[in-house]
């Protein structure tokens, strides 16, 4: 990648140890976040997107544990940091906003007190300066009459407002990287658009990089520059957003897109991905997607493909794009999408 990366995650592995079993929630995840750009991480529930994000900040609770890999932030491996050093990063250089704005604010403190927390922890601001800054931040995230709002409690605010407050808290110390874990899932559609736009605006204003975790491909198309598609704890495809939507190559990505309604093509019906996600403790030996993949060969079931560069900054974890491919050569020539439409 020619661009400078602010965050490079290499072979990150996070497991949960339950009753002697190891459940690999994140199993060798690799991706880059170019500086000032937005990376979308897409995948269905349980694919390990949120756990990857929490692993970056090392917020994994027991019985979970980061068992390997590297997380390079501005060239330094965060996994080598001590707990105290890590605390200095959290909320300061890397911030996170969560999915559920209704429960992400502490019900017993006012909005102002909560925004002041971050300022107090990292900047040592006292009450007066903190309140001024909190008002400023609320104004920045588009909350009307901020001076009144700082004295209100979370229950007095709507979901969209609370998510704005969460963003204000995350931005309090001008972070260089913002991790947004499904920031719009719990909001209704019009508010979703507003929040996404707000994040985009703030990103342009402060030159932040953003990791946008979502299961909504629409959100990805609208906000992201690069996309990492995750399936069962692994990145299966990494590409820039235009390439991904125009020319998806991994059968899983193709399946995802085929299952969405499109406005540009007449569709008789949507094509779902057959089967279900394998349970975490009975992962197939070979490609994780092989049991559901229409093109899977004996090789796919037997061996796990690598995440290979296929040119133009695109990476794919699929046997089809390797020399070892032993299935239908047509698939390789025409890409999965067309063949699946023929069916």
């Amino acid at each position: 990648m020619s661009q400078e990366s602010i965050l490079e995650v290499k072979d990150l592995r996070t497991s949960f140890f339950v009753e002697g079993d190891e459940v690999k929630a994140v199993d060798g995840v690799t991706f880059d976040v170019p500086k000032g750009k937005t990376l979308g991480i897409v995948g269905e529930s349980g694919s390990g997107k949120s756990i990857s994000a929490l692993s970056i900040l090392q917020l994994i609770d027991s019985p979970g544990k980061i068992v390997g890999g590297e997380v390079h932030f501005k060239g330094e491996n965060l996994l080598d940091y001590s707990t105290a050093d890590m605390r200095k990063i959290r909320g300061n250089q890397i911030s996170m906003i969560f999915q559920e704005p209704m429960t992400s604010l502490n019900p017993v403190y006012t909005i102002g007190q909560q925004i002041r927390e971050a300022l107090k922890i990292h900047r040592g601001l006292d009450k007066k300066d903190g309140t001024e800054k909190a008002v400023e931040l609320l104004e920045l995230v588009g909350i009307p009459s901020p001076r009144k709002r700082v004295t209100q409690y979370p229950f007095e605010l709507s979901g969209g407002m609370r998510q704005r407050v969460m963003i204000a808290m995350a931005l309090a110390c001008n972070p260089e990287l913002l991790i947004a874990d499904e920031p719009t899932t719990a909001l209704d559609v019009t508010i979703q658009a507003q929040i996404l736009e707000l994040i985009k605006e703030l990103q342009d204003e402060f030159g932040m990089s953003v990791v946008m975790i979502t299961h909504d491909l629409g959100v990805v198309a609208e906000t992201c520059d690069y996309v990492a598609v995750m399936y069962c704890g692994k990145v299966v495809e990494y590409a820039d957003v235009k390439t991904l939507f125009k020319n998806p190559r991994h059968p899983y990505t193709v399946g995802l897109l085929n299952s969405l309604p499109r406005s540009d093509v007449d569709q008789e019906e949507l094509i779902p991905i057959k089967g279900t996600v394998p349970a975490p403790h009975e992962m197939p030996d070979g490609c994780r997607f092989a049991p559901r993949c229409p093109f899977a060969t004996e090789l796919c079931h037997r061996e796990l493909p690598n995440l290979d560069d296929v040119g133009e900054g695109e990476q794919i974890r699929c046997w089809i794009y390797t020399d070892e491919w032993d299935g239908d050569p047509e698939v390789k020539v025409y890409d999965p999408e067309r063949t699946s439409e023929d069916k």
Binding site: L59, I89, G91, N92, S104, M166, M169
Partner: peptide, 9 residues
């Protein structure tokens, strides 16, 4: 919100 405050450092 406990996660959120932890994420703030």
């Amino acid at each position: 919100y406990v996660d959120a405050i932890r994420a703030l450092g």
